[in-house]
Amino acid sequence: MAKPMTKAQLVSAIAERMDTDKKTATSALDTITAIITDEVSGGGAVTLPNVGKIYCRERPERMVRNPATGEQIKKDADKVVKMTIAKALKESVNG
């Protein structure tokens, strides 16, 4: 498996595709990240066309097991961020 793209590599790719400088590309990436973070943390969802949907899901209170001791522990309800991958992206990866 290839190494994940770093932020610096992503900024360079954005700057190249947009035919702009890295400062503008960094600002664009940071703005998009902030918008997604604000929307999802507020309980909403963001759809990135041809990529997928990022959303927050609540998990109920449940019993979990400590793998070291085998002890059952009650875990409080919490929220997790999920992403559903778009069909277009799946198809582009699979051929």
Rank of each mutant, 00 (worst) to 15 (best):
D38M: 03
K3R: 07
Q72R: 14
L10Q: 01
T26L: 09
K75A: 14
V40H: 01
I32E: 06
R62Y: 07
N66E: 05
T20M: 07
V64S: 15
D76N: 14
I35V: 15
T26W: 00
V80G: 05
C56D: 13
R62N: 13
K79Q: 12
E39R: 03
P67L: 07
I36V: 12
A34Y: 02
M63V: 15
A34S: 10
E91W: 02
K23Y: 08
Y55H: 03
A2G: 08
A88Q: 14
D21R: 06
A68Q: 11
V80W: 00
Q9T: 03
G44N: 04
N94L: 08
M18A: 15
Q72N: 14
M83H: 10
G52R: 00
T6I: 06
K23V: 11
M83S: 09
S41P: 00
R65N: 09
G70E: 07
T69S: 11
S41L: 10
I73L: 11
G52F: 01
K7R: 10
K90W: 03
K22P: 01
N94F: 02
L89H: 04
T47H: 06
P67V: 10
P67S: 11
K7W: 04
L48F: 09
T37G: 09
V80D: 05
K87L: 09
Q72P: 12
Y55K: 02
A34I: 06
G44H: 01
T6D: 04
P49S: 13
A77W: 02
K90H: 11
Y55Q: 08
V11F: 00
D19W: 05
A88G: 07
V51D: 05
A15Q: 01
P67C: 13
A45M: 04
I73G: 09
D30C: 03
R62Q: 15
V11S: 02
G44Y: 01
I36G: 00
E16S: 14
A25T: 00
K82Q: 08
D76W: 06
I85Y: 05
E16W: 05
E61H: 06
A28L: 06
R57K: 12
R57H: 08
M5F: 12
A15V: 03
S92V: 12
N66W: 03
N94Q: 04
T24L: 10
E58L: 09
V46L: 00
I14N: 01
K22D: 07
A28C: 13
E61F: 07
M18T: 15
T31F: 02
G43K: 01
N94A: 13
A13G: 05
E39S: 09
K82D: 10
Q9N: 07
K90V: 10
A88N: 02
G70P: 00
D19S: 14
V81C: 04
T31M: 10
D21M: 08
A28K: 00
T84A: 14
V64C: 11
E39T: 10
S27L: 10
C56S: 12
P49E: 13
G52N: 04
I32S: 09
R65P: 05
E91A: 12
T26V: 05
T33W: 02
A45K: 02
G95Q: 06
D21V: 09
A68G: 10
V93C: 13
C56N: 13
D30L: 07
T26G: 12
S41R: 04
A13I: 09
D21I: 15
D76H: 10
I73R: 07
P60V: 11
K22M: 08
V11K: 00
R59V: 15
V46A: 03
P4T: 04
A13S: 06
K7V: 05
T69K: 03
A8T: 14
